[in-house]
Amino acid sequence: MESIEIIGGRGTIGCKKVILEVENLTKHFPLRRGIKGKLASNSTSTVKAVDGVSFSIMKGEFFGVVGESGCGKTTMGRTILRLLEPTKGKIVFKNTDLIALNTGQLKKIRTKMQIIYQDPYESMNPRLDVYRIISEPLRVQRIVKNLHDAFPYIKEVLEDVNMVPPEKYMTRYPYELSGGERQRVAIARALVLKPDFIVADEPVSMLDVSTRGGILNLMLKLSRERGVAFLYITHDLATARHVCHRIAVMYLGKIVEKGPTDDLVKHPLHPYTKALIEAVLVPDPKKRGFGEVLKGEIPSPIYPPSGCRLHPRCPIARDICKEVEPKLMPVDNNRMVACYFA
């Protein structure tokens, strides 16, 4: 069993058990073609959404994955939960190889891993009320026999997400709730099975600013008090820095840098991380200025650049970057970076 010293935003967590280990995870989407393309299947081009990603998450850890849209972070989150079938790689969750599981075993282990989505309205069936939405996992997993038996669970979990009194919210429909309340219901649904691991895919980016803090603090509380590990997927480094113990930065399907949050934010090593941090605007009119950002935009993941994927945009790229892809190498103090010149 691997043990890692985590120095996170909230101080040392100490030696903890690994709950999830991802190794060389790869997800390629074949490009849709007509029948002709299917027949000549050996020459299919693919979207390389996730391309060989490895990391591990400890019990109770808040692990952030940060990247711009199209970097593959969302696909990665779903592939880890096997909501998408990985192309290759290894996912070990609580000592179980997820990829080897059959449908029945997978269903059973889903009680221990859940997901929270970006859009709390989209992630709930608009025809169901809060009670039914939250009780769904219980019923599907046959923890309760019928709707009625789910009541104590739902009451408890609604209280856990600060929706009090719970009875008031049970009969509401998603459209009758505000964005923050909807996201709380989404968290309640994820929590009702008492999971050990939750993938939170941009859980606050659709919410009003004034309600974001509440959701983030709620998730922090859950990880602290119940030891729930979070994979926090976001494009927003500022909130990631606020909640995460460790952060991995993704670019075009690859992790380019990984490390404890404060370390990574204060002393970014990879040119992409540097640019990403530079680009974050500061809500302070006295500190004006748009930092040096990378030129251009993310290239297509169908034809990623050779060598280091950042090299066409990288300010410090040299010849070797165009040819040989840098590996994610440990630097010091739990940090890893994939750059020759970092």
Binding site: G9, S210, R212, G214, N217, T239, H242, V282, D284, K287
Partner: peptide, 21 residues
Amino acid sequence: LKSFPNIKAEKAPIISMPGSP
């Protein structure tokens, strides 16, 4: 203003206002 984390300043807690607009 306190709901906006500032990545270039020291870390401060993010507050959340109760209720919704």
